Simulated assay, not measured.
Amino acid sequence: MPELPEVETTLRGISPYLKGQTITRIDVRQPRLRWPVEDEVQQLVGHTVDSLTRRSKYILVKTAVGTAIWHLGMSGSLRLVDPSAPAMKHDHIDWHLSNGRVLRYHDPRRFGALLWVAPGETSEHLSHLGPEPLSDDFDDSHLFQKSRGKSQAVKTFIMDGRVVVGVGNIYANESLFLAGIRPQTPAGKISKARYQRLTQTIRQVLGAAIEQGGTTLRDFVGGDGKPGYFAQQLYVYGRGGEECKNCATTLKEIRQGQRATVYCPKCQR
């Protein structure tokens, strides 16, 4: 599924084409997404896009009449297309823009969403979220303080959006490998020094993925239609049974929270 770097890549791809443009028409071909598309979204028509920002995996499009919030779900993507481009089977929503382009939402599984928030209100989907991993709020002591007394595995701990947002399965695997921490280690038993290292590797991995345009998976493409290339540099994710790139030990694969976890039994302790 699109994770934080893919969402950030999408945001950067579509922002130059949306900011300052007027939304002239909205076509909702399929309103039954993860949450039903609200009729209030039509209030955007005739109004200018003031800003686009990201919070966790949500893209926020702000106007004078309210904020539209996109979530790409498991398989969603936003692309800019020509108005003459025919809508395909899973192209569910079009925003027509004053510059002659169309922002098109494509989502085969329909686990994504288009939400609406009135001016001055906060979405319930955003109110419980932890700090952004690339922000100053995610400092060296944050993970250590949040982990005290917790017996859950460190991998599921750092994937909890209430602890820190955007550390999805791919990037949790990679960050823990670079930090030398086994994913099944209880979060409360990891030292502050090791959490300082993990904080650094989370920043490093997410930053590198964003710079390279996100990770190419089955369904993701950026807002400009170009795939990401971070998958070429993965150390452990998707490589269970292969040799560790650092020490040639066979990588082990286990399941945690119904997700694949891959780690090196020698490099990670």
Rank of each mutant, 00 (worst) to 15 (best):
P2C: 11
E3N: 04
E3V: 06
E3G: 01
E3Y: 07
L4Q: 07
P5C: 11
E6K: 08
E6Q: 11
V7N: 01
V7H: 11
E8K: 05
T9L: 06
T9Y: 02
L11Q: 13
R12T: 01
I14W: 00
P16I: 12
P16T: 13
Y17M: 09
K19H: 00
K19L: 10
Q21V: 04
Q21P: 11
T22K: 14
T24W: 00
T24I: 09
R25Q: 15
R25N: 14
I26K: 02
D27H: 06
D27E: 15
V28F: 03
V28C: 12
V28G: 05
Q30E: 14
Q30T: 12
Q30K: 12
Q30G: 00
P31V: 11
P31D: 09
R32E: 13
L33H: 04
L33Y: 07
R34T: 03
R34M: 04
R34I: 09
W35Y: 14
W35C: 00
W35S: 06
W35E: 12
P36I: 04
V37W: 01
V37G: 04
V37T: 03
V37F: 01
V37P: 01
E38L: 14
E40G: 02
V41Q: 02
V41W: 07
V41T: 14
Q42K: 15
Q43I: 07
L44W: 14
V45G: 01
V45M: 11
G46M: 08
H47G: 07
H47A: 10
H47Y: 15
T48C: 11
T48W: 04
V49R: 08
V49S: 05
V49G: 06
V49N: 05
D50A: 15
S51P: 00
S51G: 07
T53P: 00
R54H: 06
